[in-house]
Nucleic acid binder design. Structure first.
Lengths: 197, 197
DNA sequence: ACAAACTACCTATCTCTATAGTGAGTGGCA
DNA sequence: TGCCACTCACTATAGAGATAGGTAGTTTGT
């Protein structure tokens, strides 16, 4: 159910088409809540049906049209309500840690390969998070820039710092994951013996 | 699909009834992969149908019976295959971090309450993880003890250290979450002003 | 003039997960 | 004798999410 609020969060910066949303998503909210467009389009429809969004049809080229969604008053209210409600605690679902606990069943080579894959994935993710964090710090992040336009300049610092705070948390998690995988590689080498050719 | 492998992992320690599984789950594998019994029972059935488990009906009291599941050769093979396959990378789905990024929309009181709730949840989780880790270190963990019986004593250290390694990763994540929430509380106080009565 | 890449939006289907039950047997204790 | 907590096993249903498509118009480069 958080997808709805992730979309509201994004759309509070400016009105967007479904396509914009699905593109913007990957550069901001997706770091925190991934969704494919096959989920985004139907959800936007449902949100309009529920009165959280309203759409205007905009011409596009000669014959084409596109639908731009804007958050309604009811949408703002729903978002505020969600913000003030207790957070849903996520269930633990971590296949990587599950596997790690049973690494004695893996081939030594496979164990190493998986830890490397895990480390590389998180390293890449970390790089992206740090890059995005930097665009928040210097306020060059496009969605953030559009968002700040609605606010008085004396509010900017407050808004930006919450976003940086969120990214800091994600960066911490990513760094912890990378460090853990690296310790895992050392452990595998120690326990399985180094079989490097 | 990892539920299947989480169940296999647990059942490699010893044969169990569905009820045992759903109880043991919460004390071990659930730290890494939570599942309610309404998922466990049907999955055990499907795994038997697919030949990964076989069940024997055991009498229980005067009239009652229970069904004990044991991993088959095919089950072991499937588990090994999964262990050697690349890990599925989980999508980011973190409502807490999503909210954190938009904390300017929350009431200051609500923001504080949520961060406290988040911190408390992870603190509690951390305590449980550390307690379980300790039972792995001293090998008093019941499922681990049963598991080690299948192995030669010179393998014990290897097996135990992988489990400790997995818990260390979870503990790192939990600690990072707690520390982040604490920084968040300081930030909220700074930005929203201290409105403590 | 045409292809390729991009914008725009949507559907179908399947699996996974969550929630909330049902119902019967057992063992202890008051 | 009756009650309660626990053991055991399962079902029904709805919603969320993943995967894999489809269709139509637009822009850009050659």
């Amino acid at each position: 159910m958080s997808l709805r609020y992730a979309l509201l969060a994004l759309l509070t910066s400016r009105p967007m088409t479904g396509y914009d949303v699905s593109k913007q998503f990957s550069q901001s909210v997706a770091h925190v809540w991934h969704a494919p467009d096959s989920q985004i389009y139907p959800e936007l429809n449902r949100m309009e049906r529920d009165g959280l969004l309203e759409s205007t049809v905009v011409p596009w080229g000669k014959k084409g049209t596109k639908k731009e969604y804007a958050v309604t008053e009811a949408g703002i209210a729903a978002f505020r309500e969600w913000m003030d409600a207790p957070i849903e605690i996520r269930r633990q679902r971590e296949p990587a840690y599950l596997k790690a606990a049973y690494l004695e069943w893996a081939e030594p080579g496979a164990a190493r390969a998986e830890l490397e894959q895990f480390r590389d994935h998180w390293t890449e993710h970390l790089t992206m998070l740090e890059a995005t964090r930097a665009t928040l710090v210097d306020r060059s992040h496009p969605t953030l820039a559009r968002r700040l336009e609605h606010y008085d300049a004396n509010q900017w610092d407050r808004i930006v710092r919450y976003k940086i705070f969120a990214y800091d948390g994600l960066i911490d998690q990513a760094r912890a994951a990378v460090a853990w995988a690296e310790r895992g590689l050392v452990l595998v080498d120690e326990l399985e013996g180094s079989t490097v050719d």
